[in-house]
Amino acid sequence: MDAEIIIFICIAIGLLACTLGVAGILRFPDVYTRLHAETKLTTFGSIFLCLGIIAYVLSQYLAGGDAQYIVLGLHTLLALIALAFTNAIGAHAISRAAYRAGIKPEGVVDRLSEVEQK
């Protein structure tokens, strides 16, 4: 029973973070700020969804399940690591490409443009 509550809380946090990430993608003014919302909130949401899955798998295993549940949890963990690393690197690639394509960020300071002019 307790495990079920933990699973529900993890999934709720994950879905809330994903929803806020989508709201950020739709609301923010330019590419860079949208990337902030996308990278951080969706990665955080998927981390918590995966934690919910791992909690479910562990509870099933401890309740007398077979070794297949452990395999499922291990592979979920691997997928989570792959997702977290690739999301961050993909965000660098997109922001660098956007800057090279000549899209200037809206904002108060832009130290990068000072360097490119020199």
Partner: peptide, 20 residues
């Protein structure tokens, strides 16, 4: 970070820029 960004998504209070 996520709590911070979530609050900024809801309130829309941002001040972006690139720093060194």
């Amino acid at each position: 970070a996520n709590i911070d960004v979530a609050i900024r998504v809801i309130t829309g209070n941002i001040r972006p820029g690139i720093v060194k």
